[in-house]
Design a protein around this nucleic acid. Structure first.
Lengths: 243, 243
DNA sequence: CGGGGGTTTGAGTCCGTTCAAAATACGTGG
DNA sequence: CCACGTATTTTGAACGGACTCAAACCCCCG
């Protein structure tokens, strides 16, 4: 099923609610008009690719709705899920800035609405408003910080602790608290992806999940998760000595 | 032993050789003058701290000579060596941009020359020349890319493969080829640090080194390393399946 | 209803860690 | 220059976590 597109007047950045929560909030009124003219809105179905590793980007992607997986493949074809992107995030600007091919692929994990902004428009805006570049810089620095935190976790935590941490992070975004104080959520990713996010085999994740269920810490059914006492997951994150 | 400083006229960015290889190369002549006025050059001894995690940066640091280790500590006090910085690199600008405390510490791994540039001067220059911000953005994007590559390696490689890869990377910078085709280098870091760079215990690194010696792949004596056939190390980097 | 991917479970093995102790290198002051 | 205390590195033995290979299961979708 191909993605659907809506050009120009059909949708307008001027009225976009997400824009105020994104890097584009630094733009002046006339610059937003320029942004709106250079933009095309796309709707993606679950599993559809927004861009692929190796391609040269011809623009940036601004998320309005849904969840997008940022993956990188190694030489053996392993896919590692590096990051989940959400509304307000801008994707793929590295390639536009450097002219180099994308180093990651971006794939919709469910119905998603993503606006594509023409490379020429992006460059015009960066030229017109230096704050946009500084905003991108702040955002990229935050991503780098997050990536370094993940590196520290990979170096110091066990797979069980990393999975517990990941569940807490996902619960923060997807979770709902029920009347009895338990937390529940619907996982946005498969267990294979959960495994690649923490750098473990999927069988290992499966086994850790079994143990968490036996110990009454978390209960899984398909992609829905129920955690009776969220503190029990927090207890799992105990770093070990490294070095 | 305290670091030594040289203010203003004692050293000058205008004549600095490294500047042309750094982010500051985008500056115009009059902007370089401004840079030179806001700058102080420091000499650090091995082990001295340039800045520490938790501090708020009052400027950025521009490396002229030496090697600097960028570390992060976790809650248990584990130090993870995230990155090695070299002449031409600019350090600590994230904290200046966001006003948040440093997320990492920077420590000289040997005699190093690093210029400190006043936060006010940095902001003036970012204001005066938008290309400087874009240059920082490109640099940060490259760092993010490198961090993500490390994440993929941590997720897919064994400790042995990760150590082999690290040795190859270090050999690229510190290595010299001898007449018989072997490669030798002097390691810039301790084995403890080597271990934290690949996310393993130092005992494990010690054991891997023993095995590499028994197999004739690499020979260690103190901090000097000799690799008779560099291809043998390349052979070690075989990713395994993950996910 | 028949695939096919994702998931679970099992058994066996190996890698890497833990704890402990010895050996070595290093810096400092005498 | 050497003695000494400290930190780093090496090595050992035992344990446990995580991986490999394999088979069965499940569920979704065509």
């Amino acid at each position: 099923m191909p993605k659907t597109s809506h050009k120009g007047s059909d949708f307008d950045c001027v009225t976009c609610i997400m824009r105020k929560h994104s890097d584009w909030r630094v733009l002046a009124t006339d610059e937003v008009d320029l942004l709106a003219r250079g933009q095309t809105r796309y709707s993606y179905q679950s599993g559809e690719s927004i861009y692929s590793m190796g391609q040269v980007g011809n623009g940036v992607h601004c998320m309005c709705a849904g969840t997008v997986a940022i993956r990188r493949l190694d030489a053996e074809g392993n896919s590692v899920l590096l990051h989940l992107a959400y509304p307000g995030d801008t994707l793929g600007y590295e390639s536009v800035l450097t002219g180099e091919p994308h180093r990651c692929s971006a794939e919709a994990l469910g119905p998603a609405k993503v606006c594509h902004i023409d490379a020429r428009t992006v460059k015009q805006l960066l030229d017109a408003n230096p704050n946009l570049g500084l905003q991108f810089l702040r955002r990229t620095a935050a991503s780098l910080d997050a990536a370094q935190d993940k590196l520290v976790h990979h170096a110091t935590l066990s797979n069980r602790a990393k999975l517990a941490h990941l569940l807490l992070v996902l619960m923060d975004r997807y979770g709902r608290e029920t009347v009895d104080g338990a937390n529940t959520m619907h996982l946005p990713v498969s267990r294979r992806d959960l495994a690649s996010m923490i750098g473990a085999r999927h069988e290992t994740v499966s086994r850790i999940i079994s143990r968490l269920e036996n110990e009454g810490i978390a209960f899984f059914s398909g992609r829905s998760v129920r955690v009776p006492h969220i503190d029990a997951l927090l207890e799992e994150i105990r770093p070990q000595l490294v070095g």
